[in-house]
Write a protein that binds this DNA or RNA. Structure first.
Length: 222
DNA sequence: AGCCAGGCTACCG
DNA sequence: CGGTAGCATGGC
């Protein structure tokens, strides 16, 4: 059976850049080819925290913020909840928008505590202030291993450039398109999760090189 | 020096 | 509804 274009893009990126091993942790770093992360509640929360901090920011800036919290022995929801607001803001300053993000983090923590280790639904996540569609999907995919494809600005640029979606396509449209294309070939949930995780990471790795500045897609081999 | 980063909310027409 | 200003720091 002929592979569809989306799966072709995935195979090509994977062959080119190799396994990405997202999500990275402060403790443990990258873990390519190991998909049993997160291993505990602390790692689940660290991913959620990283998702909020990385909104419209580079992950290297996020690592600085997470490291600040870590050296203060405060890289956990209980510690963050109990620390002075100014200390939190100062710790996450490198990631930008620290006033907003401090509020978002505290909002998320009160939501997270009420979960009692249950997996949140996408709808529930979207009701938390500061969690939009991409953050909700990132949390579900990387922290909770749910098969939700993550769409970001890079994904859209790439798909527009190769002519698979329209410039005006919404987040939802792009997400459903990707999920349907991929599920033509991959049905099993566990396999789907790993593919979604790697695919999004590969798109980011590739797009950093060819889709960061206009005109987008110059030199892209897809 | 200016543009961009792994977005989201609030508010506008 | 769709479109956009504002949010803030750091890297190149």
């Amino acid at each position: 059976m002929a592979e569809n274009k989306i799966l072709y893009i995935y195979r090509t990126l994977h062959a080119h850049y190799g396994v990405q091993g997202w999500w990275p942790f402060i403790n443990g770093g990258y873990h390519p080819s190991e998909y049993d992360y997160p291993k505990n509640e602390a790692q689940v929360f660290e991913i959620c925290l990283g998702v909020i901090l990385t909104q419209n920011t580079t992950f290297t800036s996020v690592v600085k913020s997470l490291t600040n919290l870590h050296v203060m022995n405060s890289l956990g929801y209980k510690a963050i909840k109990n620390m002075p607001l100014d200390e939190l803001k100062s710790a996450i300053k490198p990631s930008g928008y620290f006033n907003q993000k401090a509020t978002y983090i505290l909002e998320f923590i009160s939501f997270f505590e009420k979960l009692n280790d249950k997996i949140p639904s996408r709808e529930e996540l979207l009701h938390v202030k500061g969690i939009g569609p991409e953050s909700a999907d990132s949390i579900l995919l990387y922290a909770y291993k749910q098969p939700e494809f993550v769409v970001d600005a890079y994904t859209k640029r790439l798909l527009v450039h190769v002519g698979l979606i329209d410039e005006k396509a919404s987040y939802h449209t792009i997400k459903k398109f990707m999920e349907e294309e991929i599920q033509e070939e991959v049905k099993e949930s566990q396999e789907l999760v790993i593919l979604y995780q790697e695919f999004h990471a590969l798109i980011v790795a590739h797009a950093k090189l060819f889709y960061s500045k206009k005109p987008y897609g110059v030199g892209c081999f897809l």
